[in-house]
Amino acid sequence: MLVRVKSPNCQSVDGHLAALAGQRVLSSEFNYRKEAELFGEGEDAEYVYQIIFGAVRTYKLLPDGRRQINSFHLIGDMFGFENGATHRFTAEAIVETKVRIMRRRGLLDAMVNEPECMTNLLRLTTLNLEHAENHMLLLGRKSSLEKVAAFLIEMDDRLVHPDELTLPMGRRDIADYLGLKLETVSRALSTMRDRGILRFNELTHRHVVLMDREGLAKLDG
């Protein structure tokens, strides 16, 4: 299905595609099943993606077979921009996911005469760089408890669930994002539960109620 998104003056409530292009943007919408691949590492980077609903993980497989997740993309997020001609990571749907897709070249061409939109693109690129820097710090300088606390703070900031975090990703994903073992993530979450910082609403432990945000922030250091 083709969708035209209009955004006057490069501002958009519904998403960044229109905000970046600043004019009518021709895009397509696609549905992906859970675990379906959107693109693979090394494939041509022809398209830019924006999540309508669902969630996507981007990751690399290390030489020893381990998986390192570099980012989780949530509702409204854009991804797929690359410095080169190919993708550096593989992207998979974590849950049933719907995305809006448009050609990268078409988006860039639409922005040529829109200085404000080029500023928005620079802002997006800067935010992605900031996330990458924070993630490197998270992997290299924090204890396991601090890592899990930092992850929950990130999700609390990004997910619009003021009373409860509904995490689309499971503990295996969290472990591969934080560079930890699955058991270590489970122990850290149990420690936070025992300290009254959070509680779980379901057996899956994907529904998290943060009881003590100040205590969580202290754990993050």
Score class of each variant (00 low, 15 high):
N9T: 01
E29H: 08
Q23H: 14
H16F: 12
A21L: 06
Q23F: 04
P8H: 07
L17Y: 03
E35L: 12
L26S: 11
C10K: 05
C10H: 03
E37D: 03
S12R: 02
F30C: 12
Y47F: 12
K6A: 08
V13E: 10
K34C: 13
N31K: 14
R4H: 14
S7V: 02
D14Q: 12
V5D: 03
P8M: 09
F39A: 07
E35R: 15
A36K: 10
C10N: 07
A18W: 01
A45T: 06
V5Y: 03
H16P: 05
V5K: 09
L20Y: 02
S12Q: 06
N31I: 05
Y47N: 15
G22K: 02
F39E: 01
R4L: 15
G42I: 00
E43M: 10
Q23I: 00
P8G: 07
P8I: 02
S12I: 00
V5T: 14
G22D: 01
N9D: 10
F30E: 14
A45W: 08
E29C: 11
G42L: 09
Q23D: 11
Y32H: 12
A21N: 02
L20V: 02
V48N: 09
G42Q: 08
A19F: 01
G22E: 04
S12T: 05
F30K: 15
A18M: 02
A19M: 06
E41W: 03
A45R: 11
V25M: 13
G15E: 04
L17D: 01
K34F: 07
K34D: 08
L20P: 01
L17E: 01
C10Q: 06
R4K: 15
A18Y: 03
S7L: 03
E29N: 10
V5N: 07
K6D: 03
P8T: 00
H16L: 15
F30W: 11
A21M: 08
V5W: 03
G15H: 02
D14G: 07
Q23M: 12
E29V: 09
K6C: 07
S7A: 09
V48K: 11
V13T: 13
L17W: 00
L17M: 12
G42Y: 07
L20G: 02
E29W: 00
A19L: 05
L38W: 00
V48L: 15
C10V: 05
H16V: 07
A19Q: 01
A19N: 03
R33Y: 05
N31P: 11
G15N: 06
S28H: 13
L38R: 06
E41K: 15
A19K: 02
G15Y: 03
A36H: 10
H16C: 11
A21F: 03
Y32C: 10
E46A: 13
S27D: 04
N31M: 11
Q11D: 06
A18C: 07
S12G: 09
L17A: 03
R4C: 11
R24C: 05
D44H: 10
N9L: 14
S27E: 04
A45M: 11
N31T: 06
R24Y: 10
A36V: 05
E41D: 09
Y47T: 07
